[in-house]
Design a protein around this nucleic acid. Structure first.
Length: 671
DNA sequence: GCATGATTGATTTTT
DNA sequence: TCAATCATGC
């Protein structure tokens, strides 16, 4: 590395880069130049003679991993084909593909996402003749996840009855040759702990390990890297306990404490200088986060000017909020000559996204939405993926259930329950049960046989075409779509909305284009269709590459904004019961602290301007609910705020008072 | 009896 | 916006 590159780093960053041997703990506050430090550190490792393939850099999302290797590539000017920057789950996938046969799975396993797992559990309930509606399936799956990853030992919801249901659930998963996200980590750990030669093989390859976003790793993920690093001890973890926002998913920032115990000889570096935000924004963030009790004490500082005050926007309801934000954004964009990509809008929950997105579309402002429903989660795209999944694994019951009557082919509830009956009795998959029925035609009405036979033949025919298709599988899928007349099916499904149906069809075509691009990329010639599907399942929710060239406003959840920054940030829906979310208010102080960290993350995304917006009422289902501004706003001193009208300077208290008197007035008017 | 169409209800955050 | 439940038509 030439010295001019090193000289762009501050002292903490430089120490982080130069400390290449032995354990290293870096606490990197928001906006402290963390990514720059990490990329420089890896470039420096390479320059010091460490081989590409000996470095393992674990990131939080696949996208972050790709960006990181891209940046290191441009820093070093090398292709870096063997440098592994990846997520824990993708890393686990690589190991399982090679070694999972030790655990009784086939290497072509299917990965199930949350939706698939819900469907599996519903199948179990159905099989055992429970009333599905009386179960809170999401909650039960969450508890089961906590149990099986040893985060808890017991739970009031996890009665012996429920536990036995989940035993059946796991049996089904095995029958389907399917793994959920937890299984990826659990099974890799199992391999490491029960098959020493597997661990040895992986351990000897990676001599230098880095973990980014360490505050959001789970205890099991930590064990994974602990196994890899405990011998050579060249492990560098980078995190910020104040930005831990995934504890509900098993993230455990106590891992930092565990690391300190496991690696007592570690060096520690604090990056506490913030380069991102104005002094005003940083002060607000600092004032907010000191209210958390459970944290490493630290205060970020900056050389920046105060800059502009934080502006609060008050609207009547969600739609009015969208209009207000657009109005403000237009005026800032015009005044400061900023392109649309300088703006980010962050919300707490996914369902706040569509209202905003629609308003932007109406105003013809280009917007790119992350989170919420991703492209790959669109119903019709999932249908097409389900066909692929069935071709690849006929025992994938969940995918088969999805397409068995899509498009409609007269296999309804009654026919399905006949199949189910056979399946449950013989402990086989749906596909095998259908085959069984077709071998005993005489026991069933001919109409039923006809529908099932047509489906069976269709799948068999296209499955063999699919595998004969070589690298032209996308063509086979295209002809499948024509054969099953998916287009006219969509037109029937959305009567009177021809454009909507065609739009949906076009997203299938887009998917096919993406898939065909993958097939024809020489880089993937070694990868087979199984790997494509496995990777796809891990990347479903991630933002696909935006078309270059066009400036877009970014619209996303606060969670997916982690690691990003914008010149101007709008926080929308900053109301009590949204942030902090009502579920967390009911829970406990710890949950509330996580909400506060989330709000902290949101605030610290802003460089120059921060707008905080709330509405007086919000639509819940079909009617409106009166709301009040987030309690977190009271933790930030009023002199950092101003209001767009600026007719009068109000403190937050006065503002709240005015709000409630207005609400009372409106109520009396309605009465 | 069975598939399909219409209505209703409810939604934290994601690898 | 999506899925589960209830009503309708073949």
């Amino acid at each position: 590395m030439n010295s001019s590159l090193l000289s762009t780093l501050n002292e903490g960053q430089r120490q982080s880069v130069l400390t290449t041997e032995g354990p290293l703990l870096i606490i990197a506050g928001a906006g402290s130049g963390k990514t720059k430090m990490i990329t420089h550190r890896i470039a420096y490792l390479l320059e010091s003679g460490v081989q590409e393939k000996e470095i393992l850099a674990l990131t939080f999302t696949n996208k972050a991993g790709n960006e990181m290797s891209e940046r290191i590539r441009s820093l070093t000017g090398k292709p870096l084909k063997d440098l592994l920057t990846t997520t824990f789950h993708s890393f686990a996938l690589r190991i399982l593909k090679k070694h999972i046969h030790h655990l009784g799975f086939h290497h072509n396993f299917t990965i199930y996402d949350g939706q698939d797992c819900t469907a599996v559990f519903k199948e179990v309930l159905r099989e055992k003749e429970y009333d599905i509606a009386s179960f809170d399936i999401r909650a039960l799956l969450a508890v089961h996840s906590e149990i099986k990853t040893s985060r808890i030992k017991s739970h009031p919801l996890y009665t012996p009855d429920i536990a036995s249901l989940f035993e059946t659930y796991e049996q089904h998963m095995k029958l389907y040759n399917a793994l959920d996200f937890d299984d990826l980590i659990i099974n890799t750990l199992k391999l490491f702990e029960e098959f020493p030669h597997v661990l040895e093989q992986v351990r000897s390859r990676f001599t230098h390990i880095m973990v980014d976003e360490f505050q959001d790793t789970s205890a099991m993920q930590y064990r994974l890297i602990h196994h890899l690093a405990q011998e050579h001890r060249n492990i560098c973890i980078v995190g910020d306990d104040d930005q831990s926002i995934y504890s509900w998913r098993g993230a455990n920032y106590q891992n930092i404490v565990q690391f300190e115990t496991d690696f007592p000889e570690r060096k520690e570096i604090f990056l506490d200088r913030n380069y991102r935000s104005s002094n005003t924004i940083l002060s607000a963030a600092n004032q907010l986060i000191v209210n958390n009790s459970d944290r490493k004490e630290k205060t970020l500082w900056t050389d920046s000017d105060n800059g502009e005050t934080i502006i609060t926007l008050e609207s009547e309801d969600g739609e009015d909020e969208a209009r207000t934000i657009i109005e403000q954004m237009r005026s800032v964009s015009f005044r400061e000559q900023l392109g649309w990509s300088s703006f980010g809008i962050l919300v707490r929950t996914n369902h706040l996204l569509p209202t905003l997105e629609n308003a932007f579309m109406l105003e013809q402002i280009p917007v790119s939405v992350t989170g919420g429903q991703s492209f790959f989660e669109r119903k019709e795209v999932k249908d097409l993926i389900a066909y692929m999944r069935v071709f690849v694994n006929l025992n994938d019951d969940i995918a088969l259930l999805r397409i068995i009557n899509t498009p409609r082919r007269k296999i309804g509830l009654a026919t399905l329950s006949a199949v189910r009956h056979i399946k449950d009795a013989l402990h086989i998959s749906y596909w095998e049960a259908i085959a069984h029925i077709l071998e005993h035609k005489e026991d069933y009405p001919s109409s039923r046989i006809k529908a099932l036979q047509q489906f069976y033949d269709l799948i068999e025919e296209y499955q063999s075409l699919f595998f004969q298709g070589g690298r032209r599988k996308s063509k086979v899928l295209h002809s499948l779509l024509e054969r099953i007349e998916y287009r006219s099916f969509l037109l029937c499904e959305y009567p009177g909305n021809e454009n909507g149906a065609l739009w949906r069809y076009s997203s299938m075509e887009t998917f096919l284009k993406l898939f065909s691009r993958w097939e024809n990329d020489p880089e993937n010639y070694e990868n087979n269709i199984y790997e494509y599907l496995q990777r796809l399942m891990l990347q479903m929710r991630e933002q696909q590459d935006k078309e270059k060239g066009e400036e877009r406003v970014s619209l996303m959840t606060m969670h997916s904004a982690k690691g990003l920054e914008f010149d101007t940030v709008f926080l929308a829906g900053v109301e009590d019961h949204i942030i902090p979310h009502r579920r967390t208010i009911e829970e406990n102080e710890k949950a509330l602290e996580e909400e506060r960290r989330l709000f902290y993350v949101a605030i610290t995304r802003a460089k120059k301007r921060l707008y905080i917006s709330y509405a007086k009422q919000r639509k819940v289902g079909s009617d409106y609910m009166t709301t009040s501004p987030s309690r977190f706003l009271e933790e930030i001193s009023a002199d950092l705020f101003s209001f767009p009208t600026e007719e009068e300077q109000m403190s937050t208290d006065e503002h709240l008072e005015r709000l409630s008197s207005l609400a009372a007035f409106l109520e009396s008017k309605e009465a």
